[in-house]
Write a protein that binds this DNA or RNA. Structure first.
Length: 311
DNA sequence: AAGACGAAAGTGGTTGA
DNA sequence: TCAACAACTTTCGTCTT
């Protein structure tokens, strides 16, 4: 998630919006749509999040001024807290439009989930887990929404029953990231949870099957931007790496291969072509694969595409 | 000395009988 | 259920810059 101080207003007029769409990338860190041709920011996703940051759930609770919305504690022994319809906070001040939207959404959830009480508690726990995971993985608003949507459906269909809430949430996060095309590897997600990669993968497959999720095939190009960003490489490298992946696809080198590994090799190669060299070790580390995999993909690419890297 | 390369053995998941 | 298999990892020795 981008900090608010990294917000950049639209700097160009409508002319720049004519930028061909295939040259536009989305920077998930800043929420900006960037044209690779000229490096222009041509769009900015609204940051729906709070203006402060919290690194765990209790911190978030302390900082939430309006209170209530995050914690729908409708436990058995606890007095239920309801979100009323006045659109005002505890001190009687009017809520901002963003807060208002959030409150109405939560109201809806609360009403829907009031009937089965155990489901409500389960959902609360899932939201806690999601909050933790979100901050660690830097998930944006759209993804969090989608995760909760997936989770609710899973809960309704009884997929969660008998499984660790954390595992199902992690699986929903993985699915949501894939659907929103901001992929995280299973390893990354597993790193921030107490469940194994294996269990998350099992839950993920179950979710896809039971809910009939339509998850696009992982595209190496979605990884390229992340890898290049982490390594501080320019947009030029990204365009080059995209081209390489496209050619590799046409040459039939991509089937059955780990998209992260392929992206890593493309970035490695592109960086060398452009002259912003990075070692195989560095690229492999941020891509979450080993040097050997980068090497193997790299070898295949230069062999089949006849690319020669000038020293 | 660091980086790149490649061989060999091991791992975890998928597929098909 | 089990074996074969493909892709990837780990490890390690060697070559190159």
């Amino acid at each position: 998630m981008g900090d608010l101080d990294s917000f950049v207003p639209l700097i160009d007029g409508p002319d720049e919006m004519k930028c061909p769409s295939d040259k536009v990338v989305f920077d998930e860190l800043t929420g900006q749509y960037i044209c690779l041709e000229g490096g222009y920011v041509i769009g900015q996703e609204l940051d729906m999040g709070p203006e402060w940051r919290a690194f765990d759930f209790s911190e978030k609770q302390r900082r939430s001024r309006t209170g209530g919305p995050i914690n729908l504690s409708v436990g058995s022994s606890v007095i239920s807290s309801m979100i009323d319809w006045k659109d005002r906070d505890a001190t009687g001040k009017k809520l901002s439009p963003l807060r208002k939207a959030e409150a109405s959404r939560l109201r809806r959830w609360q009403i829907r989930s009031r009937i089965p009480d155990s489901a409500n508690r389960n959902l609360q726990q899932a939201m806690d887990e999601l909050n933790n995971l979100s901050h660690r993985l830097g998930l944006n608003h759209a993804i969090r929404e989608r995760v909760m949507h997936i989770y609710r459906e899973a809960l309704e269909k009884g997929v969660v029953r008998g499984r660790a809430v954390e595992a199902v949430v992690a699986a929903a996060v993985y699915a949501a990231c894939r659907i929103e095309r901001l992929p995280r590897t299973l390893d990354e997600i597993a790193l921030h949870t107490r469940v194994s990669k294996k269990e998350i993968a099992r839950c993920y497959r179950l979710l896809v099957k039971e809910l009939g999720l339509r998850v696009p095939i992982a595209d190496p190009r979605d990884f390229i931007r992340r890898i290049a960003d982490s390594l501080g490489l320019s947009g030029h490298v990204i365009t080059e790496a995209m081209k390489i992946v496209d050619s590799a696809r046409h040459a039939g080198l991509t089937a059955g291969k780990d998209p992260a590994g392929l992206a890593a090799a493309a970035v490695y190669l592109a960086a060398h072509i452009v002259g912003e060299k990075r070692t195989q070790k560095e690229v492999a580390a941020v891509a979450g694969v080993t040097e050997v995999t980068v090497r193997n993909r790299y070898k295949e690419i230069i062999q089949f595409l006849g690319i020669t890297v000038a020293e």
